[in-house]
């Protein structure tokens, strides 16, 4: 009970400064609207956005849920695939030389350029959006896994040699835990990228009408010059991204807080305050 109250207190303590910031921005935004007489089709007032969000809450929430599930699936593919690929590259120099440039290339080709191809391959609807999310999110997972595996403490590595550890044991008991902080960092970045990838995938190949996801809602609202609905849908997309990021962060904390300085609020940066 005490810890629950503590957690709620901590959440409130963490939430009020960003909430205040949002409130201040809305006030300034409303004032600008009033003073400069900006037309509503360019930028709607915060109140109009709020009203539209409330009126369209059902399609927006359903669309948000679809987008969230798609992003989650894409994130899952990127997380599992990225850790496996990163692990392969972290173990073998030859594989790194063969695969790393290709993944970097994948990273530098704009997703919007390959999204139409994904629709051709995977068809309309969620599958192509999942693929887009996975492609957008996989690179940081690979890069951070490789980095984590390469930064295993050489002293500990020597200890495992002296104790005659088998390759499998070295993997399970040394390499994996050592690279966990890096993998978590990669997953945090991947969470945000997965939502961006999903939206791009939905722009190009999403369903419209009844089964519309957030990407399609944004696109069709744009075509109808419903700027207020675009704003509301973008707000929902931000919530989806924030939620996914929050889940990854919480999982990372659970795995690391007992031993890693990054999860104890006491890394080297704490000394800078």
């Amino acid at each position: 009970m005490k810890s629950t109250a503590h957690a709620v207190g901590h959440l409130l303590w963490a939430a009020w400064p960003p909430l205040l910031t949002v409130l201040v921005i809305c006030v300034i935004w409303g004032l600008c609207h009033y003073v400069f007489e900006i037309p509503a089709y360019l930028v709607p007032t915060p109140l109009a956005v709020g009203q539209t969000a409330w009126e369209s809450r059902e399609p927006l929430a359903l669309g948000g849920l679809r987008t969230a599930l798609t992003a989650l699936a894409g994130f899952g593919v990127a997380a599992i695939g990225g850790v496996i690929l990163g692990a392969m590259m972290g173990t073998s120099r030859m594989l790194t030389r063969g695969l790393y440039p290709i993944t970097t290339l994948l990273q530098t080709v704009p997703l919007v350029a390959i999204a139409p191809l994904l629709v051709v391959w995977f068809g309309y609807g969620p599958p192509s959006a999942i693929a887009a999310a996975a492609i957008a999110a996989i690179f940081p997972v690979i890069a951070n896994t490789v980095d984590g595996l390469r930064s295993v403490d050489p002293g500990l590595s020597e200890l495992f040699s002296q104790l005659r550890a088998k390759p499998g044991q070295r993997w399970r008991l040394l390499a994996l835990p050592s690279s966990l902080p890096g993998i978590i960092t990669g997953l945090r970045i991947a969470a945000g990228l997965a939502v961006i990838g999903t939206l791009i995938g939905e722009f190009v190949g999403g369903y419209s009408g009844e089964n519309a996801s957030l990407g399609m809602i944004i696109l069709s609202a744009m075509r109808q010059s419903r700027t207020d609905l675009v704003f509301a849908a973008v707000g929902f997309a931000a919530v989806v991204g924030f939620a996914l990021f929050g889940v990854v962060n919480a999982a990372g904390w659970l795995l690391l807080h007992t031993w890693h300085p990054s999860a104890q609020g006491g890394g080297s940066l704490a000394a800078w305050k």
Binding site: G155, E158, L159, P177, L180, W259, H260
Partner: peptide, 11 residues
């Protein structure tokens, strides 16, 4: 072997 630093696994 006892190394110069204890080389414990932090986790």
């Amino acid at each position: 072997v006892c190394f110069q630093d204890p080389r414990l696994l932090p986790w």
